[in-house]
Computed example of a mutant assay.
Amino acid sequence: MSREAILNAVRKNKPESLPLPEIDLGLFEEEINLVETFIDNLKFVGGRAVQLNNMTEIDAEIKKLYPNASKIVSCVKESALGTISINKETEPHGLEDIDLAIIKGELAVAENGAIWVTENDFTIRALPFITNDLVLIVSRNDIYLHMHHVYEAISKRDRTFGVFISGPSKTADIEQCLVVGAHGAISLTVLIV
């Protein structure tokens, strides 16, 4: 069959679109401590969280956690630790030896320890994945209970690149040999302010 014949057959046999199901979000409401639940679930997926009292503690905490980091990209104005500047013209392959990236997380999800980050908060899309270690800074007021709530919140955003990050990069083979840092950062620390 020609390409056009295949595409016509697909168009002809396309099922009717169905509306999305109505979900009563009230069924998912729970009276829990969002920060504690987020911390527990982030730890479960291999990340760690540190609660800070205010933004002025960010640099001291990062220095304590990553004392040997020298090649640092900071994408947040609250941190003065950046030693490498990047912009839209920066070649992503040139970031392969970055020790630490510091990025703002827009939203966090208590149920699974995921953090929503967008390209508005880091100039180079590869940055959170190419760095050795990753620090995300999240406001405790931006922690949501479930993905349903977060999807509702991010549906109002500009349609730019965004991704959920949950724990450090990891993979396991069929023999269940876990490898951390296989496709991205070796560690993920979330600073909750």
Results as ranks from 00 to 15, higher is better:
71 K>R: 15
51 Q>N: 11
90 T>R: 01
49 A>C: 12
56 T>L: 04
84 I>W: 00
86 I>N: 03
59 D>R: 10
86 I>E: 04
91 E>Q: 08
88 K>S: 15
87 N>I: 08
83 T>M: 02
52 L>W: 11
54 N>H: 12
59 D>S: 14
55 M>P: 02
57 E>A: 12
69 A>W: 00
52 L>P: 09
60 A>D: 15
65 L>V: 13
67 P>V: 08
80 A>F: 06
57 E>Q: 15
79 S>H: 11
64 K>F: 07
82 G>R: 00
71 K>I: 10
61 E>D: 08
54 N>V: 11
89 E>W: 05
79 S>R: 12
90 T>D: 05
67 P>S: 14
61 E>H: 04
50 V>G: 00
83 T>Q: 02
88 K>Y: 07
61 E>S: 13
71 K>D: 09
49 A>Q: 04
82 G>F: 01
59 D>E: 06
55 M>G: 02
71 K>C: 07
66 Y>R: 06
92 P>L: 07
86 I>Q: 01
90 T>E: 01
87 N>F: 03
68 N>P: 03
50 V>K: 04
54 N>S: 15
88 K>A: 14
68 N>V: 09
80 A>I: 14
78 E>C: 04
87 N>Q: 06
70 S>P: 01
80 A>K: 08
51 Q>F: 00
69 A>K: 00
56 T>G: 03
70 S>F: 07
58 I>P: 01
57 E>W: 05
67 P>H: 11
76 V>W: 01
74 S>K: 03
82 G>H: 04
70 S>I: 11
81 L>W: 08
61 E>G: 04
62 I>D: 05
67 P>Q: 04
92 P>F: 13
57 E>K: 06
68 N>R: 05
53 N>I: 08
75 C>N: 12
91 E>T: 06
90 T>C: 05
62 I>T: 12
52 L>D: 09
51 Q>I: 14
70 S>M: 10
79 S>P: 07
55 M>N: 10
63 K>H: 10
54 N>G: 13
50 V>P: 00
55 M>R: 11
81 L>C: 10
88 K>Q: 15
49 A>F: 09
68 N>L: 09
59 D>W: 07
80 A>T: 15
56 T>F: 00
53 N>L: 07
54 N>M: 06
67 P>E: 13
88 K>C: 09
82 G>Y: 00
68 N>H: 07
81 L>Y: 08
79 S>V: 14
79 S>T: 14
70 S>A: 13
51 Q>M: 13
50 V>D: 02
68 N>K: 10
64 K>W: 03
61 E>K: 15
67 P>D: 08
58 I>F: 05
49 A>K: 08
92 P>M: 10
64 K>G: 10
85 S>M: 05
76 V>Q: 01
87 N>Y: 08
75 C>L: 03
55 M>H: 05
60 A>N: 13
63 K>E: 13
67 P>F: 07
65 L>A: 15
53 N>T: 13
73 V>S: 05
63 K>Y: 06
63 K>R: 15
73 V>W: 04
55 M>V: 12
78 E>L: 03
53 N>M: 07
73 V>D: 03
64 K>C: 10
59 D>C: 08
86 I>G: 06
66 Y>C: 12
75 C>F: 03
92 P>Y: 11
91 E>I: 09
91 E>L: 09
65 L>C: 13
72 I>N: 01
68 N>C: 05
90 T>P: 02
73 V>T: 11
60 A>T: 14
53 N>K: 14
58 I>W: 02
60 A>R: 11
72 I>G: 05
80 A>Y: 03
65 L>H: 07
92 P>C: 10
77 K>Q: 12
